[in-house]
Nucleic acid binder design. Structure first.
Lengths: 151, 151
DNA sequence: GTAATTTCTAAACCTAACTTTAGATCAAGG
DNA sequence: CCTTGATCTAAAGTTAGGTTTAGAAATTAC
């Protein structure tokens, strides 16, 4: 056993709970970068378990994969991230989460006064102008205020 | 002009800000049910403006279209919904929203203590067991805890 | 009464985030 | 050495939530 043969993709999958196909997909999206062994198979570092765990958590917070990649780009590239490194990027994650919670809370507080009254049919209703509307959830092209449809 | 010719789909689109194609799509998903005029064109009631507005608001809250359809099913089918009817179903909406906010808040409160510590690599971490994980956001098949992948 | 709009349907296309499939190659156990 | 299991790549399929396109029929406007 050499000091560092690395983890095979199946082992990493078992450690993280992710599907093998998902890990390959994340690589294609630039979220993780394994090296290859002599036979061309992917090998991962121990630290990648944590990296993928972070990806999963950030996803629960509603970040898209490109957003997560961006957050991860603040990790040092030249060495294995330390606990402090992880703590540092968690700050950025936390800020996004705080904003999301604020938006939902604001929306909720408007709900009671708004539904049932006339404003539900008006475009100026407070519920119609959230900040992060277009990206709030789901995928696919989405027509939203200020994003003119063809017809 | 008869008393009730109804709104054409284009008019409804202008009133709500939705694309015509989206309105047809919502019909296919069972969210709205127009009638047809002699020529086969869709006609809508005035109350449908509010119905679609509700759909848009519920979407911002993160509900999927099937969920919204379910919420809307509590409206009276035999008559035009009254303001009180709308208020009633808003309660159901608010409950879901409260839960979502709670989940996010709990997640956030765990974040600082969790990232950077060893638990980030462990499946038992508090961040790994949210209630509504599978449906929290995004689309497509998603392998998540308790939903075994094939390989 | 004709021209310009709208609307109709069905089917194809789009994005995000993955999974499935197929056929080939690698690695490990006996 | 051979067999079994793990990986590899590329391409196609899936879901949600829509949009685009094409050709035809209905409405509206003049």
């Amino acid at each position: 056993m050499a000091v560092s043969e690395g983890l095979a993709i199946g082992a990493l999958a078992r450690r993280t709970g992710l599907a093998v196909s998902a890990i390959r997909y994340y690589e294609a999206q630039g979220l993780i970068t394994p090296w290859r062994n002599a036979g061309g198979q992917r090998r991962y570092q121990r630290a990648d378990i944590r990296r993928l765990s972070f990806v999963m958590i950030a996803q629960q917070f509603g970040l898209t994969l490109p957003e997560i990649r961006e957050v991860l780009s603040d990790l040092p590239g030249n060495r294995t991230p330390t606990p402090q490194d992880w703590k540092d990027i968690s700050v950025s994650l936390r800020a996004r989460l705080d904003q999301r919670i604020d938006t939902l809370t604001r929306l909720r507080d408007n709900l009671d006064g708004c539904i049932g009254c006339g404003c539900l049919s008006l475009p100026k209703c407070a519920l119609y102008n959230p900040d992060d509307r277009a990206k709030s959830h789901g995928s696919g092209p989405r027509y939203l205020m200020g994003d003119a449809p063809k017809t």
